[in-house]
């Protein structure tokens, strides 16, 4: 077995070159909260670990084209301290802040949470609901990929060898917009989501829903963008009937498994419950909004 090497390049080009040279043996280290557990458990044996945290682009939050661009290796704690993101995307921020404990928040990143490929990753349904787009870099250059297209199966992503996520672009927020994320866990903290639901809506001046996106986590092999659930809201004032349709659509979209964290029945039912509850929070935020 090859000895593991550690590198911490300070530019995107250098990181791409290293990962490209390493091929299959290369792994990206962002917050490390998944990778180090896998290393210790002997689940992975990388020959090269490329720590991307010294690269300025992956660590920055900036305003861009009316929206925000957030570096893939910005930690949850840092995101939660960014007033602009908290105001524009409270659902994304709260989802990211739900990843693990305070200690995990000091390290864990949205980029890592996404690229670990878990269907239960907390930030991902909120990112999907937000319509966030990942900026991916690799040997063949830069490309933009909608977040919902990154995870293609448990632990699997659509990233090519040597590619990694540099940042996420969040679109501009129209007036009367709000997002929210809720997850179900057995305890109050420290668990992996059994179900996660992110809802993002925009209302018109009369309070009628003009646009909506709904993301679900831990209910299928990948996090889901559920168009039927969004359609249930669009054109409504998020009245009880619309919320019931939303819950039914969310439950209908689930293709979960029975495992140590929950049953098929439980996940299916609770996905609807959480989608409805998250929609109501998003509604309050949209009404309070700009």
């Amino acid at each position: 077995m090859e000895e593991m090497r550690y590198e911490a390049p300070d530019s995107l080009d250098a990181a791409v070159a290293m990962l490209s040279d390493a091929g299959e043996a290369g792994r990206v280290l962002a917050g490390g909260t998944d990778l180090l557990v896998q290393l210790r458990a002997g689940m992975v044996h990388p020959g090269l670990v490329v720590d991307i945290k010294n690269i300025p682009e992956v660590r920055a939050i900036s305003e861009e084209g009316g929206g925000f661009r957030v570096g893939a290796a910005v930690t949850g704690a840092e995101l939660g301290e960014h007033a602009g993101m908290c105001k524009a995307w409270p659902g994304v921020v709260e989802a990211t802040e739900l990843i693990g404990s305070t200690q995990i928040q000091g390290r864990a990143t949205m980029g890592g949470n996404l690229c670990n490929g878990s269907p239960a990753a907390d930030s991902v349904p909120a990112l999907i609901a937000a319509g966030a787009v990942a900026s991916v870099i690799g040997p063949s250059g830069q490309r933009d990929v909608p977040v919902e297209d990154i995870i293609i199966g448990p632990g699997k992503t659509s990233l090519e060898k040597g590619e990694f996520v540099v940042s996420f672009k969040f679109p501009d927020r129209p007036a009367h917009s709000g997002d929210a994320y809720l997850r179900f866990i057995p305890r109050t903290e420290m668990d992996i989501a059994v179900v996660g639901a992110g809802v993002n809506i925009t209302l018109d001046d009369d309070g009628v829903c003009q646009a909506a996106r709904v993301g679900l986590g831990a209910v299928a092999a990948t996090p889901l963008l559920v168009a039927d659930a969004a359609d249930a809201l669009i054109g409504s004032t998020l009245d009880d009937a619309a919320l019931e349709k939303l819950a039914a659509a969310a439950s209908a979209a689930c293709k979960p498994i029975d495992d140590k964290r929950g049953t098929i029945e439980f996940r299916t039912k609770v996905a609807g419950v959480l989608a409805r509850r998250a929609a109501l929070i998003a509604l309050d935020r949209a009404k309070e909004g700009r």
């Binding site: 057995p186 109050t188 140590k260």
Partner: peptide
């Protein structure tokens, strides 16, 4: 055993 760690063997945490 499928849950041999404090992640899925869920002992109460302070907020519980």
């Amino acid at each position: 055993m499928q849950n041999p760690g404090f992640l899925d063997y869920r002992i109460p945490v302070a907020s519980d």
